[in-house]
Design a binder for these strands. Sequence first.
DNA 1: GAACCCTTTATTGTATACAATAACAGATCG
DNA 2: CGATCTGTTATTGTATACAATAAAGGGTTC
Lengths: 237, 237
Amino acid sequence: MHMDRASQGRDVPLWRIVGSHRMSGASDTAYTAIRSYLLSGDAPPGSQLTEDRLSEISGVSRTPVREAVRQLESEMLLVRSESKRIFVADWSRDDIDEMFTLRQMLEGHAAERAAKLLGPADIEQLEQVNDELHQAVDQDPPDVVRFLDANRIFHEIITNAARSPRLAQVLAMLVEQPVVLRTARQYSVEDLRQSARDHDELIAAFKAHDAAWARSVMGSHLRRAFHTFADAASDAD
Amino acid sequence: MHMDRASQGRDVPLWRIVGSHRMSGASDTAYTAIRSYLLSGDAPPGSQLTEDRLSEISGVSRTPVREAVRQLESEMLLVRSESKRIFVADWSRDDIDEMFTLRQMLEGHAAERAAKLLGPADIEQLEQVNDELHQAVDQDPPDVVRFLDANRIFHEIITNAARSPRLAQVLAMLVEQPVVLRTARQYSVEDLRQSARDHDELIAAFKAHDAAWARSVMGSHLRRAFHTFADAASDAD
DNA sequence: GAACCCTTTATTGTATACAATAACAGATCG
DNA sequence: CGATCTGTTATTGTATACAATAAAGGGTTC
């Protein structure tokens, strides 16, 4: 009995199915450690970090830390001052707006291509991931972390399906920001449900191989996601 | 007599006006040297390079070479094998197609925003650069290098005018590829003239602050550029 | 007390030696 | 032969010491 692509992933953790990150070596230790630190919220946006400090945090020498910092810089979780010092990125509402706008363009394009390229097995995988997402929402209380994981994987599958390495590389720079992830914890159940419904419709568009439909749904999905974020963020003030 | 932004650049070399690259230190020496080497055409696409070799070429130690390689990897002039070895990128026609498609999306967006944000001084600068470009075309024979320089700066001004650091960063990854630059040498005068006319129309759209017009012209400009490239490349076979 | 210069300290940049790993080539065995 | 094992070499990865540079502090002068 052979294992096709859909069945392959059935018994492994969801977050392993779409793995883009090499996981070994001190560079990756540093990357993972620093990223967790930034996403944990313990690092105040705008505060300075030094390579030595990050070296302590991650337990490896400065050399791999420097590589990790470069990567996190390109993902815009870190920024550098004029004199090359390292700071935790501080995203304004306009910055987040622009990020979602870019994602809308690029992921809209990805969805368009995916509609033409996705096979039945791929679509089955998308449904599987979206089931996971639905379950996370329908828990009481909803499991936001599980939701965000499934959501990320759902989008990654589509991005990869577009079979454009350049597009994937560019989108990797526009991942969710700490401020967005933190804000997600206070989304309403209805917000999460609507997101899941968007995914349902996206899958329907893929099944119909309707590129324009897919782009359109992806566009409104991401645009609404921005406003959900913006509302939650302003409520938090 | 004060110096406004337009007059500031009048006496400095054109390529200095829009400088996004920090120019100092061994890392930049390495970056510049390796990039020149790749663009010179002496490096066969697909061939392997080692850090030691690049270190010899650029005259600095492996540490800054590694940083430069990372940068050139993100600009997709270099690629890495499964085992992390370094190779000169080898772009297929489809890869180039996809690159121009992504540029069309992103620079179309940039043009849209630029149409709203560009001031008279900025537009004057664009005109100045496009004059340069016209002159390069009207020389006999046309000066393709001068043309490409002016063209790059023209597009960079628009990208920067969009005032979206993320957009600029993403577009920096989609710069012109060696194969495109080499092919440009055999563009017909008429191809170059049409390019210059596109720029004229772009400037007209900016003067009218007509975002939709600007996006549209940028779109057809880049799309035609791809076909010009593709035709020239297939002729060269 | 405010601006300037000088010293000291903090931080990043570079070179280099060594460690880890992958590719290569030749020998051995079926 | 062909496959596989093994030692050798090529190449990248990591740690660390030192160099270069920017920031911070502290004293001096006007």
